[in-house]
């Protein structure tokens, strides 16, 4: 079943157009990645889905058009956005950050259980549960951002460059946990990355974005073996 369908998506920052008719789809339970260089429109694509930028075109989530909704209503539908820069609530504690992730949910017991579940994925957050989130390292803040997204019990996770600014070992650790999350939570993910290598390893489907256009799409394997992609984005 198609969880997300995007057709002819155009996005605008005031007068400046950032996307020029982007089409893509995401199957429920799968991971799709959008690759591209700086300024290609990857972040804008995610911001379009979360209704943080003016758009034209169609965005359907679970068959429902969401372009008329506000950002908070989109979140309430079960779309958890891990934003560029991680969106940490820096003055709140780690645990308060996780509680905020569950803001739309009512059942306190479920929320408490899910906090334990997040700590099971990220034991380091457990150690720092009472600490102000702004004092965490970049990698820990990325873990917290993913944990916060999990607290929504999301049907779809939007992940904006989880590898950004992190040491290779930490990136590897975070991607291993993301793979576990996919297997255990059956979560669907739309993953945006500059680090094409690691994203193609995780994702089922991939789209290549250049200056607001989709220039290539297909199974991750296909893109990985494409000569051009290899030279330009994988670097070998």
């Amino acid at each position: 079943m198609k969880l997300l369908e995007v057709k002819g998506l155009k996005a605008f920052y005031r007068q400046t157009q950032a996307l020029y008719g982007v089409d893509f789809e995401l199957e429920e339970g799968s991971i799709t990645t959008i690759l591209g260089a700086n300024g290609a429109g990857k972040t804008t694509t995610l911001r379009s889905i979360s209704r943080m930028v003016r758009t034209e075109g169609e965005i359907k989530f679970d068959g429902q058009d969401i372009t008329g909704l506000s950002t908070e209503k989109v979140a309430a539908l079960g779309i958890a956005h891990v934003p560029e820069g991680r969106g940490t609530f820096v003055r709140q504690s780690v645990e308060e950050n996780l509680h905020l992730g569950a803001y739309t949910r009512k059942n306190k017991n479920d929320v408490a259980n899910d906090i334990d579940r997040v700590y099971a994925y990220f034991p380091r957050l457990m150690e720092r549960r009472q600490q102000q989130a702004g004092t965490l390292s970049g990698g820990e803040q990325q873990m917290l951002a993913i944990g916060r997204a999990l607290m929504l019990r999301p049907r779809l996770m939007l992940l904006d460059e989880p590898s950004f600014g992190l040491a290779p070992l930490i990136v590897q650790e975070i991607y291993e946990i993301m793979a576990r999350i996919r297997d255990q939570e059956k979560a669907s993910m739309l993953l945006v990355e500059q680090n094409a290598n690691i994203a193609l390893n995780l994702a089922d489907q991939a789209y290549l974005l250049e200056t607001g256009h989709v220039v290539m799409s297909g199974e991750s394997e296909v893109l990985r073996n494409d000569e051009n992609v290899r030279k330009v984005y994988l670097g070998y």
Binding site: A75, H81, P83, T88, F89, R91, L100, R148
Partner: peptide, 24 residues
Amino acid sequence: TKVGLAMRAAAANPDSARLVGVSV
């Protein structure tokens, strides 16, 4: 309280607060 926490979050980081479903 949950609302109190949401108010603090909305004041400190409105974009992030919207993304977790808080009506800023």
